[in-house]
């Protein structure tokens, strides 16, 4: 699905309006809620999606994540990949 779609550094991804991202104490994690579904997010996924507000550019999201998770040099590629995959799933829009 994400095959021929690529986010550019200046794109500002935003969460699709059907999805609701919030902290859930009982799961000790961020969850993504949508019609008829719940997805529990790991820390990285949550940090990326939190920034998908339509205000922050993909480049800035990548830079901020890099600062958060310093130990990984290749994080930038992974973030673009994540954005593309979740775009394919309909979670985020460009």
């Amino acid at each position: 699905m994400s095959g021929d779609f690529h986010f550019q550094p200046e794109d500002r991804p935003r969460l699709d309006s059907k999805y609701l991202l919030r902290w859930e104490k009982s799961q000790d994690a961020y969850v993504l809620l949508y019609p008829e579904g719940v997805i529990k997010l790991n820390a990285t996924a949550a940090e990326i999606l939190k920034r998908c507000t339509g205000e922050t550019t993909a480049a800035n999201i990548a830079a901020e994540l890099k600062a958060l998770f310093v130990d990984n040099a290749d994080i930038e590629n992974s973030i673009y990949k994540f954005l593309e995959v979740t775009h394919g799933k309909g979670w985020i829009r460009r």
């Binding site: 719940v38 997805i39 996924a45 992974s78």
Partner: peptide, 18 residues
């Protein structure tokens, strides 16, 4: 790491999620 499948679905863990 952020990659496909990094966002796992909930298994409920014995909670009445629905």
């Amino acid at each position: 790491m952020a990659k496909d499948g990094s966002a796992v679905s909930l298994d409920g863990q014995g909670k009445p999620m629905w």
